[in-house]
């Protein structure tokens, strides 16, 4: 990391300009928990680090109507301390809080987790299931994009040169909605997800699921929005038959690899298990809300 340059701009526009000028080696710094490790290991070439944490909009959580707007560099621990966010989106908060240790939570951000473009990123399936969007700032101004459009391949994003995510927006949601995220790791903590599953449900007054979103992590090159799996839930009360259909549809959506963290076969099976379990939790939450 000897040839790194560092700047800490105070406006999004300055940051975008610096990122563009810095060329392919320029990187935005959110929490740094991925970036610093990658720079140090040599996986990323040394270049310009643009710290986003001095940009006011990049830090903190705002409520906008029923929506929540979360600054790109807001550390995970801030999410866990936000009562209203935790009530509205417990699955998103849980997923974010699963990233690394308490120490990592003091730094790591959802936007960083998203833009690192790992298929195993814990917060991303929950964000995708939540139908979250991001506000992207670039040299040509601002644009909005869905969360699932950001990562295009492991380690690769759709962001243009100079662009970075400034905010993540969780939409306003009706009552009787609930979400959940579960992952499988060998230990109880400190691991990268071998499989992750996020489920987001809305029920009608009778408890019938009217809207469902299921997203699966670490079972493909990017997080998978499993629409058939979600469809298996809509119109049901997440009963056993629906869950069995969900399990099968989730497995059918998987396209994993075998690597040091798990076999493709294992990942596929567990995706079904976790989708089922997460759906049950999300359903219980939706009923209570």
């Amino acid at each position: 990391m000897s040839n790194v340059e560092f700047i800490a701009p105070t406006s999004p526009e300055q940051a975008a300009k610096a990122l563009l000028a810095g060329g392919p080696g320029a990187r935005p710094l959110g929490g740094g928990t991925d970036l610093l490790v990658q720079l140090r290991s040599g996986r990323l070439p040394a270049g310009l680090i643009v710290d986003l944490k001095r940009i006011p909009e990049a830090i903190g959580i705002r409520q906008d109507g029923g929506a929540f707007v979360i600054g790109a560099s807001t550390p995970g621990i801030t999410l866990s301390e936000h009562k209203a966010l935790g009530l509205a989106w417990p699955g998103v908060v849980e997923a974010t809080n699963l990233i690394g240790s308490t120490q990592v939570q003091g730094r790591a951000s959802m936007a960083g987790n998203l833009c690192n473009a790992s298929p195993a990123a814990d917060s991303v399936p929950a964000l995708v299931a939540a139908r979250a969007t991001c506000l992207i700032v670039g040299p040509d101004g601002r644009r909005t994009a869905t969360v699932e459009s950001i990562a295009v391949a492991p380690g690769k994003t759709s962001l243009a040169p100079g662009e970075f995510v400034l905010e993540i927006r969780l939409p306003a949601r009706p009552g009787r909605s609930g979400d959940a995220y579960l992952r499988s790791i060998p230990r109880t903590e400190m691991d990268i997800a071998v499989v992750g599953a996020g489920v987001n449900l809305t029920l009608d007054a009778a408890g019938v699921i009217t809207e469902a979103h299921v997203a699966l992590g670490a079972v493909g090159p990017t997080v998978i929005l499993a629409t058939a799996a979600a469809a298996a839930l809509v119109g049901t009360k997440a009963d056993e038959a629906a869950l069995a259909n969900l399990d099968a549809a989730a497995r059918a959506a998987c396209n994993p690899i075998s690597d040091k963290r798990g076999t493709a076969e294992f990942r596929t099976k567990i995706a079904g298990v976790l989708a089922r379990r997460a759906a049950t939790i999300a359903y219980g939450r939706a009923e209570k809300r």
Partner: peptide, 16 residues
């Protein structure tokens, strides 16, 4: 060696 670090060489942590 594919897992030359404490991330993927998994020693027990306190919660294990």
């Amino acid at each position: 060696m594919e897992n030359a670090g404490f991330l993927d060489y998994r020693v027990p942590v306190a919660s294990d």
